[in-house]
Design a protein around this nucleic acid. Structure first.
Length: 841
RNA sequence: GCGAGCGUGCUGAAAUUGGUAAACAGACAGGACUUAAAAUCCUGCGGGUGGCAACACCCUUGUGGGUUCAAGUCCCACCGCUCGCACCA
């Protein structure tokens, strides 16, 4: 009979924690704060393994720092606007709000069962007007500070979701959620002025010393700085100038054509040209579906541009598909000698290919230049090194007022308009006199209407006349509400601030609370948010500061990006995925039961759990069958957090077995204690056990601090293995096992608390704080030394600690069974004190 | 194409940052208990050679080279995998 019954004890302790508000957090100025945050979930209705892993990692952290005497805040909320709710409304005729609330209730009860040390009093939900009224205020602040603006623009239109996508939400030309091929559509959109902070967002990455390098690099690439110059080319016979951006202005004497994007403003000169319009359509299609190097297309305008420095040189002007409107100026000068793309283009259209770098005539296109390369055929730049030439050409460009030195960023402003119902309404009205005005703050929140018809395609708000038509309260003039809603990334860009003041009624958050709790000390979530969510949040902090809010520039001090939860996959011969639980192994191959017989299946690689690959395991059923503590312990013992975790039901079973064993053993034998006083008269074995226990306290503490949870667990298992086998006196037994329980508490709190309570602890483990080690209590005066010959380990020897090299060599020679040391000539002896000695023969 | 990271037993991994490779687990195999199975416990588990045996010796961190008394760890080249960006001017 198993003594260990997680179903009962987990419920019991969860109730006690809840009733006694154990995890409630308040500002306490006298205590050091610690803000632990896991990325809040979208309430899909069910938690998945990724959640379980994420929140377990966060919970171990939160409990650990709490016991280390920090004032810990560990909140949870819901990223609850977004398309699944609206899709449910369209498909199943349910109210998005009710649908969402039901999902939240469901997921919350699942989260409760994990036993997380969350402060539920701070719970927030982005779709509640209690949250989004503050968000609307923030939007208005942004509006009044020129951080948001409206512009007509071609947008990425997702024909399946019928909405606009941000550039970042387009992956390989397809919608990030729907997977549909994205189309271009012109709409008037709200944009956040994130590019205003490009420079800052980039350089401040350096200050994020506790972020993974990988994430910083991804952000840095995304912001995409390039330094160069803008140069103007005059079009012969016209008054027009074409401004060109280049990172290699020193190659300007190699220019033999101009290439413009078909979306460049200059194209308006050809808007009635049928041939051009056909060409433009072709180019846009090419650009949308590009995979690798597509063919370069050219449209010769018949016009020529004047070279800024060579008055008698005229170069042809083309439109081409290889020049993109959304980078630089949408126009380049072609330098085919030293740029592969320009080279391809020039070859195709038989344009001049000039070599302007010395001795490279036979290596064209010569693109990656060397430090010592010098220029030729370049007028006043001849014989200069490229780096020198760059400086002098920029000087000249500036002096002659032909252009300027300039830095460009890849980062574009963030389009936040969504033609959707289930999002935060944008608090703007369009008055009949043409004015675009923010809603008065005393009218906030602008709530979503609840009687909405979802039977049309497109945006339901746009069709909801009662809601849409309004009047301006100041003037009484008729007005129309903005019917677009905000991108949900807007919602998640400041929720961590709101957690600090979740009950603040009139303002989003208070200075006092922000000042105390922010920044988030440890932020834990998936690597998939490395760019978007984190970059937007960093932008929000800066934008809010411009509006007068006192928030830190960088919201997240330390970032932990957890890996995915993976599971094996199986496929039938005709390529259908098969649930791993249906597969069995027999006669050296894998089979699945199918009607009467078995069919053979092949094992694929382990992949991220996903419905489509049928390799999902539901954490809720694992928790009800094996217990939350088993699930928690398994989630962190196999792999370090940032790496992918391989799901294994055998691992779960074995973890449960281990807990069963320890529970039954300790329940009978342990008397819980916090101290061990009687240190005299210990046997050598007992001394070792005591030292080992203390050593584990240190290593475990360090491993948890460094997010090496798997090592922390290994060390604890080593301790329990040792303790089970050894016979030590009662006091020491109690002390070592109690220490074990106090450490493992942060991982499996119900288990540990229950055992401690059963064996004598009155009260909560929470109140005991973290165990301290007494460092090395005993010293047997010996050092174990590795004896090597030519760098290879031969044997170990125990000698007095601190022994000199000479004494050690003497001892080894006297006792050594290895003839080589005594007989062969020793060339050299390397001695690492108290550790290792190497005889070089 | 550019950038980053990784490569250790059958598997997940560890190795105090240049000093005993494989800690801790999982799978598997053998044994004990049992009429039997499950559960539980014990043992083995990188490869090779020799030995009845306890054991001894040798090899082993993707491949090849280098630095060093000493390399999984540092350097160079190659192979393979993963991720990010990609006609970015």
């Amino acid at each position: 009979m198993s003594y260990y019954n997680p179903q009962i004890i987990e419920k019991k302790w969860q109730k006690i924690w809840k009733d006694s508000k154990t995890y409630k957090s308040r500002v306490e100025l006298s205590k050091k704060k610690f803000y632990v945050l896991e990325m809040f979930p979208y309430p899909s209705g069910k938690i998945h393994m990724g959640h379980l892993r994420n929140y377990t990692i966060g919970d171990v952290t939160a409990r650990f720092y709490k016991l280390q005497n920090f004032n810990v805040m560990h909140p949870m909320g819901w990223d609850s606007f977004g398309m699944p709710a609206e899709n449910a409304a369209i498909e199943n005729d349910v109210d998005p709000k009710k649908w969402t609330e039901k999902n939240i209730a469901n997921m919350k009860s699942q989260l409760m069962k994990i036993g997380l040390s969350l402060d539920w009093d701070r719970e927030l939900s982005t779709c509640s007007d209690n949250y989004y009224k503050h968000q609307q205020k923030i939007f208005i602040d942004f509006f009044n500070n020129n951080l948001v603006y409206k512009k007509d623009s071609f947008v990425n239109w997702d024909p399946v979701d019928k909405t606009v996508l941000a550039n970042e939400q387009v992956v390989d030309g397809k919608g990030w959620r729907s997977g549909a091929v994205v189309e271009k559509k012109k709409l008037s959109q709200w944009f956040l002025n994130i590019s205003k902070f490009s420079d800052e967002l980039l350089t401040d990455l350096e200050s994020l010393t506790d972020w993974p390098e990988k994430v910083k690099l991804m952000q840095s690439n995304w912001i995409g700085l390039s330094k160069g110059a803008e140069v103007e080319f005059k079009i012969s016979g016209l008054k027009s100038f074409i401004k060109v951006f280049t990172t290699r202005p020193e190659t300007i004497f190699g220019a033999s054509f101009l290439a413009l994007s078909v979306e460049h403003p200059f194209a308006s000169n050809f808007k009635d040209d049928k041939k051009f319009n056909t060409f433009k359509d072709t180019c846009l299609k090419f650009q949308e579906n590009r995979k690798f190097d597509s063919e370069k297309l050219g449209f010769n305008t018949g016009l020529f541009a004047e070279h800024p420095f060579l008055k008698n040189i005229k170069i042809p002007v083309f439109f081409s598909n290889y020049v993109l409107i959304n980078y630089g100026n949408g126009a380049v000068f072609g330098c085919p000698g030293h740029d592969e793309r320009d080279y391809d283009f020039a070859k195709k259209y038989k344009l001049d290919i000039k070599c302007i770098i010395k001795d490279k005539q036979n290596e064209l296109p010569y693109c990656d230049s060397q430090e010592n390369d010098k220029l030729q055929n370049s007028s006043f730049l001849d014989n200069l090194k490229l780096s020198q030439a760059k400086v002098s050409i920029i000087d000249k460009i500036v002096k002659d007022e032909l252009g300027s030195e300039i830095t460009k960023f890849r980062l574009k402003d963030w389009g936040v308009s969504r033609q959707r119902y289930w999002g935060c309404p944008i608090p703007i009205i369009y008055r009949e006199d043409g004015k675009v005005l923010p809603v008065d703050e005393d009218q906030l929140p602008i709530k979503l209407p609840e009687d909405t018809d979802f039977s049309f395609s497109g945006n339901p708000l746009d069709k909801h006349n009662d809601w849409k038509f309004t009047v301006c309260p100041q003037t009484g003039l008729k007005a129309i509400r903005e019917t677009d809603t905000l991108d949900t990334f807007f919602d998640s860009s400041w929720y961590f601030l709101r957690f600090c003041s979740s009950d603040s009624k009139n303002i989003p958050f208070t200075d006092k609370e922000i000042n105390y709790w922010m920044p988030v000390d440890h932020y834990i979530g998936g690597i998939e948010h490395a760019i978007l969510h984190l970059l937007y949040s960093r932008f929000f902090s800066r934008a809010l500061r411009e509006c007068g809010y006192k928030v830190p520039k960088e919201p997240f001090l330390k970032l932990i990006t957890q890996g995915m939860v993976c599971h094996e996959t199986f496929k039938t011969k005709d390529g259908k995925w098969v649930e791993p639980s249906k597969v069995f192994f027999e006669n050296d191959s894998y089979w699945m039961k199918y009607r009467e017989g078995n069919i053979s299946v092949t094992k694929g690689r382990s992949e991220k759990m996903s419905k489509s690959k049928k390799n999902v395991v539901n954490p809720d059923s694992i928790i009800s069958e094996y217990g939350a503590d088993t699930a928690r312990l398994f989630m962190i013992s196999d792999s370090p957090p940032e790496r992918d975790l391989e799901w294994s039901i055998d691992g779960i079973k074995a973890t449960r077995k281990y807990l069963d064993k320890i529970f039954a053993f300790l329940k009978e034998k342990l008397r819980f204690t916090q101290s061990f006083k009687n240190q005299e008269n210990l046997t050598n074995e007992e001394k070792k056990i005591l030292d080992f226990t203390n050593g584990v306290v240190d290593s475990f503490t360090n491993d948890i601090k460094n997010y090496r949870f798997n090592k922390a667990v290994a060390k604890l298992r080593e301790l329990s293995n040792t303790l089970i086998k050894s016979k030590v006196k009662r006091d020491l037994f109690d002390y070592s096992w109690s220490t074990y329980l106090r450490l493992i508490y942060v991982i499996i709190p119900h288990f540990s608390q229950e055992l401690a309570s059963l064996t004598g602890l009155k009260g909560l483990m929470e109140d005991l704080k973290w165990p301290t080690s007494n460092k090395k209590t005993f010293d047997d005066g010996l050092a174990q030394i590795v004896v090597q010959i030519n760098g290879k380990k031969k044997f170990l020897i125990n000698v007095a600690f601190g022994i000199t090299k000479e004494k050690l060599v003497e001892t080894i020679k006297k006792n050594s069974a290895n003839d080589d040391i005594n007989n062969k000539k020793i060339k050299n002896i390397i001695y690492v004190p108290n550790k290792l000695i190497n005889f070089v023969l």
